[in-house]
Amino acid sequence: MTSSAPKSPPGHFSLLYFASASSFTGKDYESLSAPISIGKLFSELESRYPGMQAKILDSCLVTVNLDYVDIPTEGEEGLVIQEGDEVAIIPPVSSG
């Protein structure tokens, strides 16, 4: 599995999926419309992949351009993802 997504088209950002997030969506990455808040992104993912919030996202962290960002609590928007950003869903890690 590669961890480099091609550059996202104008008005979009790249969303990378790893491990269980990749298995659940059947994708390594995709391009989505920007700007969008982390809160809205999670709602969008739940509607695209029903069950993803409870099965995957609840146990995941999120990075934007390689930095971990706060996951907004319910009803909050959180950080706003911008065009060209590289966002990743990070499931619990298991190296070694």
């Binding site: 491990a19 269980s20 298995s23 099965k55 146990s59 990070i90 890690v93 298991s94 190296s95 070694g96």
Partner: peptide, 28 residues
């Protein structure tokens, strides 16, 4: 940020999580 999937004989693999040592998510 490295992930391990264990492959078993005759059934689907699972992603492991080091955090709790428990079985990870079943693969779809």
């Amino acid at each position: 940020e490295v992930w391990k999937r264990e492959e078993f004989e005759g059934e689907e693999g699972v992603w492991r999580a080091n955090r709790d040592g428990a079985m990870g998510q079943k693969m779809d």
